[in-house]
Simulated scan of single mutants.
Amino acid sequence: MELMNEKKFGFGCMRLPLLDKEDPTSFDYDLINKLFDMYLEKGFTYFDTAYTYHGYHGEEGVRKALVERHLRDEFQLATKLPLRDFKDSCDMERIFNEQLSNCGVDFFDFYLLHNMGSNVFNKCEKYGAFDFVAKKKAEGKIKVVGMSFHDTPELLDKILSKYTDKLDFIQLQINYVDWNQPNVNACDCLEIANKYNKPVTVMEPCKGGTLVNVPKEAEKLMRDYNPNYSIASWAFRYAASQKGVFRVLSGMNTIEQVEDNASFMQNFEPLNEEEMAIIEKVTKIINENTAVPCTACEYCTHGCPKNIPIPKYFSLYNSIMRTTDSFSSQMVYYNNIAINHGKASECIGCKQCESACPQHIKITTHLKDVVEKFEKIALFLLEKFKKDKIS
């Protein structure tokens, strides 16, 4: 297939730079424009956004920074149909037309069924989502049809066995930590995609940035092998080295990140055996130091009845689980966040977050762990402090 002609990397637009980290729509256009322009100057063209990104304003941000500033033939644009959001067949049409307007284009180079899984598959069959994207392709409003997938290899096999003629490629979460993780099954899912000869785009190669900030012991292994390699480059090259992968997405927030990624993706070289062996050791170290495998995609927060900032709490929880000397500082962050958001203890157990989580994390269970660390222990220490002060 033509998609497999060369290794490429795409610009993932799920985490664009912001002026205010608390406002997902406060785009830092000065910086975004520079990042997009440099990426294009490096010879790359693929931008990946979605209807739901940045509080449902991600497509608008890409339009202003990319579409309104560059000729249409200078870039390739990918966006996605929100499978949780559409109500029926007519609603898919409405959303699609809205997306064309949001992005300011007449067609999409790539269009994906977004976050396919067991929670939405029956809905997609009921309302003909696969037929819908095939129809739009026939009309010339989509050039290439794909599907981003977060579920079991068995479901992927089932979908491809029924709809292989309607899907040109698959987007999978592939990184060295998730390669054999049972909640992601990256290796087995890639094997299924290869079985049906579906080229693969990789999302989350750095697992939401967690594979950039690896434990010191793991970082040393990488630096000792080659001090000139960035930590991120190991993750990207690992993903791009896999059979069937034709593109790896990167959410870039700095000029340095664009320069670094381009440096090893322009003339891509797969990992060698020695490097793969180092990755195995690094993976073991990371697994031993990560309590909750959250990528901070924030899908879980959409519609949370208690406005609980789940990824932020999990990030703080992971931080204190990695080291014993970070509790006090992480507690400050927790309390500051909780001023304008729900506390972990306010979770009502509705589990809408778990049905939306691409990582299939048992969120409500882990929120109880957060409560134990940041609320119960904190209360105990506060009471102890008061007693010690009185005595």
Rank of each mutant, 00 (worst) to 15 (best):
F327Q: 12
E346Q: 15
D224W: 11
L382P: 07
K373V: 11
N289I: 03
K195S: 01
E41S: 12
E93R: 11
L156I: 04
K198D: 05
V245D: 01
E93N: 14
S118W: 10
F246S: 09
S241W: 08
V214A: 01
K166Q: 14
Q171L: 04
F44S: 01
I170W: 02
E191Y: 10
E22Y: 05
F75E: 06
E217Q: 02
D224V: 14
A50K: 01
K376E: 15
G140V: 02
Q352E: 14
E280W: 08
D388C: 12
C357A: 12
G61V: 03
T295D: 01
M38L: 15
V214P: 00
A338I: 14
L249I: 13
F27E: 05
K87G: 03
P311C: 06
K143Y: 03
L382Q: 15
N115W: 06
E280A: 14
E259S: 14
E125N: 09
E269Y: 06
P24D: 12
Q171G: 04
N5S: 15
H150L: 00
E74F: 02
S263P: 09
T295W: 01
C13E: 07
I390T: 15
N261T: 12
G117L: 02
A262T: 09
L167F: 04
N102L: 10
L16F: 06
N33H: 10
K141T: 15
I390L: 14
S89P: 07
F121A: 08
T52N: 06
D23M: 04
F149W: 12
P227C: 03
T25A: 10
R84G: 10
F132S: 04
K351D: 15
F27M: 07
S250P: 05
Y238M: 08
E74V: 02
N307L: 07
T52K: 04
E217N: 00
T45G: 00
Y111E: 00
I308N: 01
K8G: 08
K21M: 14
N197W: 05
Q330M: 15
